[in-house]
């Protein structure tokens, strides 16, 4: 993905149909308008304001690395093989960004991928994956587990 530090002329942007986005780490990225249109939050702004596409649209919650991953996913039409190269942190970052940018197809794709990854995992794995602190007392937790013992069978190795 092309990254530009300086201003581009308006005429050139219209020709290639790109929108400049500014990520949380201050990187300006020129993104094809077809990809930007999947981002409802940006699309609605552009459509309402008929904005000058050369003025960077700020995305304070999305890093340049995450935006790169999102652009590649959309370009590759949500390729499973590409997604499988993601780390757990990358998966979570893309999910949070998809939610923030209101990208429905991407949100469904990545949430499904994470659900498939977690389906057969243990409770301990889940807590680690999401950095969740167990706020049950041992008695409370034992009580909840007791109601459905069968659901703790056939799990993946952590």
């Amino acid at each position: 993905m092309q990254k530009t530090e300086g201003e581009e002329s308006k005429a050139e942007n219209e020709e290639v149909k790109q929108v400049t986005l500014m990520t949380s780490d201050g990187v300006k990225m020129k993104v094809e308008i077809s990809i930007v249109y999947e981002m409802e939050i940006v699309r609605s702004f552009i459509e309402v304001n008929d904005a000058d596409h050369s003025v960077p649209f700020p995305l304070p919650n999305v890093s340049s690395h995450t935006l790169d991953l999102i652009i590649e996913l959309v370009k590759n039409e949500y390729d499973d093989e590409f997604m499988k190269t993601f780390s757990h942190d990358e998966l979570k970052e893309v999910l949070v960004a998809a939610n923030y940018l209101n990208m429905k197809t991407l949100l469904d794709f990545i949430a499904t991928a994470i659900a498939n990854l977690l389906e057969k995992k243990s409770v301990e794995f889940i807590r680690n994956f999401f950095n969740i602190v167990n706020d049950f007392t041992p008695e409370e937790e034992a009580e909840i587990r007791k109601t459905n013992e069968w659901v703790f069978q056939d799990l993946d190795e952590d």
Partner: peptide
């Protein structure tokens, strides 16, 4: 919530014991 909505019931019942 988006992730949990896409899990089967068996996983959901197990993950009730993740946290409150």
């Amino acid at each position: 919530r988006e992730i949990l909505l896409r899990l089967p019931v068996k996983s959901l019942l197990r993950f009730k014991s993740v946290c409150k």
